Simulated scan of single mutants.
Amino acid sequence: METNSHLVFPTVKGLVTIFYYLMLAVLILFAAKSGLKLLQAQAGPFPLDQEHPNYVSVPVAWAPASDKTIMTTGKPQLFLTPQKQTGQLQVPIRSIPGLLMSLLGIVGLVTATWMFLLLRQIFRSVQIQSPFQAAIARRITTMGFLFLGQTAIEALLKLALWQQTRPYFNHIRLANQASLSVDIQLDGPWLLGLILLALAQVYQRGIELQLENELTV
């Protein structure tokens, strides 16, 4: 068992380091690509089957022609519920929806990069002989607030995106009077953030017990 722990720890530590640099590279590339789109933004028609280089995609959904549950006549009786249809709305990056989508991407990548940075620092500073350290407790707390902050910021951006895309839908007509809207979910890693904050409190208690034990000895 001790041999397995000595193998698992450096392996996980190495994977965290790899993911950190990977997310950092993705963040830099995404920011550079978005910046180039902003600087080189142009207006004009483009083929419907291709994405314009200076446009960004906004996920949209519309209700099916019939949203009523379909029932079979045989036994046992079965029920079929039609699902929404989804697509991508191409908007200029210099428009408000385009900027909001770019910000959503940056927020997600910054959060992921920051999280792996904190994990990397935790793995680099943890010691088997003295695992409870105040710096690690602070980093776990930071990770918890990081996820809560990401959830709040993404919720605000998605609500603004829903509001700003409504004028675009006035120019789009779908068959059977289907209702078109932005396909967004107002969710986020808030639950993970709360769990990490609770874990930080438990870890802090471990630090106190470790100090008491050292003073006793």
Rank of each mutant, 00 (worst) to 15 (best):
V56E: 02
Q185G: 10
E154H: 02
A65N: 10
V26L: 09
L191V: 12
I195V: 12
G193S: 01
R138V: 03
W162P: 00
Y168D: 06
S34P: 05
V126E: 15
S125Y: 15
L174D: 02
T3Y: 10
Q201V: 14
I70E: 03
E208W: 11
L148P: 06
R94A: 03
E154G: 12
A135S: 14
V182L: 13
Q127D: 07
R94F: 02
I18C: 06
E51R: 15
L48R: 10
L211I: 11
W114L: 10
T86D: 07
S5L: 13
F30I: 02
P53C: 07
F145W: 15
K37C: 04
L15I: 10
F123S: 08
L100A: 03
W190T: 04
G98K: 04
T111V: 12
P53F: 05
I136S: 08
A31Q: 09
L15R: 09
L100F: 02
G144H: 03
L211Q: 13
T111Q: 05
I106R: 04
V16T: 14
Q164G: 09
P64K: 05
A61I: 06
W62K: 05
L159V: 06
M101C: 09
L211M: 07
Q121R: 15
R120I: 08
G98F: 01
A41D: 15
I140L: 13
L209M: 13
Q164V: 15
S34Q: 10
A32W: 15
L211G: 02
R166N: 11
L38G: 12
A112K: 03
Q40C: 07
P45M: 06
F147E: 03
L27N: 03
N4I: 12
T86C: 04
S34Y: 09
E212A: 08
A43W: 11
F19L: 11
F79M: 12
S130H: 11
I184L: 14
Y20V: 00
T86N: 12
Q150K: 10
T216N: 15
Y21N: 00
T11K: 08
F132Y: 15
Q210Y: 06
Q83K: 09
L22R: 04
G44D: 04
I93E: 03
A63V: 11
Q121S: 04
L103V: 01
M101L: 08
F147Q: 04
H171D: 14
F147D: 00
I18W: 14
F19Y: 12
A152M: 05
F132I: 15
A178M: 14
I172P: 08
E214C: 05
L80N: 03
H6N: 14
R120G: 07
I122Y: 01
I93P: 12
R94I: 13
L156R: 10
L117Y: 12
W114Q: 08
V202R: 09
R94K: 14
L36H: 09
M143S: 13
L22E: 04
G105H: 09
Q77S: 05
Q42S: 14
S66D: 07
T111P: 03
Q90S: 14
